[in-house]
Design a protein around this nucleic acid. Structure first.
Lengths: 238, 238
DNA sequence: GCAAAAGTGTTGACTATACACCCATGC
DNA sequence: GCATGGGTGTATAGTCAACACTTTTGC
């Protein structure tokens, strides 16, 4: 491994963020409108350059704070997806991008932070063709989050500090795009120690009507044993 | 998102490889001895710079070919782990490294490719303190591979084109560090369509003694449904 | 009362585990 | 024969999906 500051062409290192949240029970992603070429007028994932004194994770959290204008992004779940480094992914120069998925509990309205001309929450299914390779990054983010719901406690990252089991179930249903059986979902969640813990005595009305639901907090566990597998589209093997 | 070639300090982008294989039933990793400061004399993961015209994946495969001196690395499994970008991870300059795990079926002896002074297969457990943050990269590689064995067909990447079910089981046992019940392992593998397919009529002696084992090839499937979960160290939940 | 949403119970089918047993080979 | 590793069978416990049912609220 030879190190020589002049032996290579400089690379730009950026971060791109797939910021996901649930709005009205549907998965949404934060997009920004590009103001300049290339892809001017197209929508893209928010992102920006990694500064010389920060890691990609730090840069991602900084960009997230700028784009969402949230007062506190320190508790949000940020997950490194992978790095996209095709030489031609940006037509102007060599840009290596470290992609992240960020999970938000509530969806504050966003209409332009400091960087972007315009920012918008877009339903995942309507996130049309995006600039650069961002369609692929977004698809990878969806796939990763969907997979991690199966065997980690990640779903609580989409929920506010106190939530009902119905809201937690909505996370699974929105990300996976399938309906789940409520009694069975409930049992699986409660059977996993440390996934959620009850808030004593607290309950809340959810849909206006119906029985008030008990409230839960995220527990200490991070992994799910056994996993909560998404239903197979067809037959379960032999 | 502003792009300006002069607005940032240049980053070096490298790849680091955790090359894993099975030797005598035990997990081994390929290490190279560093010849220069920093960490001169220490062992490190092989790696090198990403060239201006190649992606990180291409660079990783090129480095893999150089380090192992294998004639054909095109069929080997290469998996991007994550990117390590702490500002101080290399004392000399800003180096962002994209880490990969590579899985090799057989372990050719390696003693210095073109780059490294010396290369060696080291048992995973004896891979002492490594240079830079390579201990962490190696641990992340092990964790990732162990997890992917559960729900993908990755295990065949450790096996030669034709292999016995006993050899496949050894992969799981070596990576997970646990013993598995042979009859049950066999059933699970064969119950997953597309995991392995029999080589008609072929069989081979394995340990010198014992009944010759039937040979199998890797199948077309990539995902495992249902997953082959590693045994829980204790109680299976409620 | 009725609709809606939360929460509980039950049953039958499937699956996994642990273990006993048989087969083919080298020595 | 006997040790070694491959391959088959099976009984029991456990788990899961499906669905019926009860509870508590708003209207």
């Amino acid at each position: 491994m030879e190190y020589d500051k002049h032996a290579y062409e400089p690379f730009a290192v950026t971060v791109d963020l797939a910021v996901l949240t649930l709005r009205a029970g549907a998965l949404h992603v934060l997009l920004v409108e590009r103001g300049q070429e290339p892809y001017a007028g197209s929508w893209a994932l928010p992102g920006g350059f990694v500064q010389p004194d920060e890691s990609a994770e730090t840069a991602a959290r900084r960009e997230l704070a700028e784009e969402t204008a949230l007062s506190d992004v320190s508790g949000l779940h940020l997950e490194q997806l992978r790095t996209y480094s095709e030489p031609d992914r940006d037509p102007r120069m060599r840009v290596v991008s470290v992609a992240f998925a960020a999970l938000l509990p509530d969806a504050p309205e966003v209409h332009g932070g400091s960087d972007a001309a315009q920012a918008r929450w877009v339903p995942y299914d309507e996130a049309g063709p995006l600039a650069f390779d961002h369609d692929r990054i977004l698809a990878d983010a969806h796939e990763r989050v969907g997979a991690k719901l199966e065997y980690t406690c990640l779903a609580t990252a989409f929920c506010p500090p106190e939530f009902t089991l119905g809201e937690l179930q909505q996370v699974y249903e929105a990300v996976w795009g399938t309906a789940l059986d409520r009694p069975n979902f409930r049992r699986k969640v409660l059977a996993t120690p440390g996934f959620v813990e009850p808030v004593p005595g607290a309950s809340r009305l959810t849909g206006g009507r119906g029985k008030p639901a008990a409230l839960y907090r995220a527990g200490a566990a991070t992994a799910l044993h056994p996993p909560l597998l998404r239903p197979t589209p067809e037959g379960h093997s032999a």
